[in-house]
Amino acid sequence: MLRHAAFTNIWLAAALVVPQLLLVFIFFYWPTGEALYWAFTLEQPFGGSNQWVGWLNFATVFKDPKYWNSVQVSIIFAAATTAIIISVSLSLALLVDRRLPGHQIYSFAYFIPYAMAAPAAGLAFRFIFSPNAGFVAAINNWFPNIWNPATDGFDAMVLVVLCQAWKSIGYNFVFFLAALQSIPRPLTEASAMDGAGAMRRMWDIQVPLVMPTLFFLLIINLTDSFVDSFGIIDITTHGGPARATDLMVYKIYFDGFKAQDYSLAAAESIVLMLLVIVLTFIQFRFVERRVHYA
């Protein structure tokens, strides 16, 4: 007897799998293939003739100091947002998990920001943090010129990091809360009876037990901040001032859609894709070893 379930009707199996494969092909492999082809040619905006140029587009990308600036900015953005998102959402989940009165209201409130579209969040942040008219403008009254994301690159980066973090914390919070709630109560109760305080229980029992979730969220957040941060940048800073928030994904958008340099944007997309793959690989190879799946 087979130890695992198997289809005897291979055609039925194929028919069931095909729609899924087709979707993946149409929405991933086909465009990626097209981008790969464009990355090795010089494509005119309206089509027409395109010529094979080998590695020229990649050479253009790599020898451009502004591209390396983009890479650096993207890495800072990804690291900062991920650190903030994970630490804040885990803390919130740990607190809500203590089930103090009214905790349902908190879980609801924390999740709401995720339901907001990135451009809407960006617009709200732009207004709130605008140096002259915004809510935060008050700080400039006490310390003149301390906050101005329109001219100060660091402030602009803080603004987009906060915006991306604010938007994603709710999503991460739900995952952490679910993970915490799946920890058997007797474990925490037993340690409480042994005299461990709330902080000790969190640190020694709960956090280690949600490590698989934390690892999953780490990868999702890093990937997200590399590929899904376009909307916020486009509304708040347009990559400025002086390219201080010119994330790789925004540069791809600008070069491809605004400047109609499809080949350069294609090469940049391929580089970004490889970078995300490498980062994910590194995490699975080295970070995951420290994660114990229950």
Binding site: R126, F127, P131, A133, A137, N148, A150, T151, T237, P241
Partner: peptide
Amino acid sequence: ELHTEQTGK
């Protein structure tokens, strides 16, 4: 003065 979308007006 600099006035852009980002500064508020």
